[in-house]
Simulated assay, not measured.
Amino acid sequence: MKAAVYTKYGPPEVLQVKEVEKPTPKHNEILIHIKATAVNSGDWRLRKADPFAARFIFGLLRPKINILGSVFSGEVERVGDTVKDFKVGDLVFGHTDLSFGSYAEYNCLPENASIALKPSTISHQEAAVIPFGGLTALHFIKKANIKPGQKVLIVGASGAVGSAAVQLAKSFGADVTGVCSTTNIPLVKSIGANKVIDYTKEDFTKNGETYDVIFDTVNAISISRSIPSLTKNGIMILSAAGMPEMIQGLWISMTSNKKVMTGVISHNKTGIVFIKELIEAGKYKPVLDRTYSLEQIAEAHAYVEKGHKKGNVAIRV
Rank of each mutant, 00 (worst) to 15 (best):
M1I: 11
M1R: 11
K2V: 10
V5E: 07
T7E: 15
K8N: 07
G10I: 02
P12A: 02
V14A: 04
K18D: 07
K26T: 01
H27W: 00
H27T: 05
L31V: 08
I32D: 04
H33I: 00
K35Y: 09
K35F: 04
A36K: 10
T37V: 09
S41V: 13
R45I: 08
R45C: 13
R47A: 12
K48R: 15
D50W: 11
P51T: 06
P51Q: 12
A53F: 12
R62A: 14
I65P: 03
I65A: 08
S70G: 14
F72G: 03
F72M: 02
E75M: 11
R78C: 07
K84Y: 01
G89Y: 07
G89S: 04
L91W: 10
V92K: 05
G94W: 03
H95Q: 09
D97C: 05
L98H: 09
Y103G: 04
Y106D: 02
C108K: 08
E111C: 04
N112H: 14
N112D: 15
A113G: 08
I115Y: 02
K118G: 00
P119M: 01
I122F: 07
H124S: 09
F132S: 12
F132R: 03
F132G: 00
G133I: 04
G134K: 03
H139N: 15
H139E: 09
F140I: 05
K142V: 00
K142H: 06
K147D: 03
K147W: 00
P148T: 09
P148L: 10
K151D: 14
V152G: 10
G159N: 08
A160H: 01
V161M: 05
Q167P: 01
L168V: 10
K170D: 12
G173R: 03
A174N: 07
G178H: 02
C180K: 00
S181N: 12
T182G: 05
L187K: 15
L187P: 12
V188A: 11
K189N: 10
I191Y: 03
K195N: 14
V196D: 11
T200P: 00
T200C: 00
E202R: 10
D203K: 13
G208I: 08
E209W: 01
E209S: 11
T210E: 07
Y211H: 02
D216E: 13
N219F: 05
I221H: 07
R225M: 12
S226M: 11
I227C: 03
L230I: 04
T231A: 02
K232Y: 11
I235K: 15
A240T: 08
P244F: 12
P244E: 14
G249W: 02
L250W: 13
K258C: 01
H267T: 14
I272V: 07
V273E: 15
F274M: 07
A281C: 09
G282W: 11
K283T: 01
V287T: 12
H301E: 13
V304H: 03
K306C: 06
H308W: 00
K309H: 10
K309D: 02
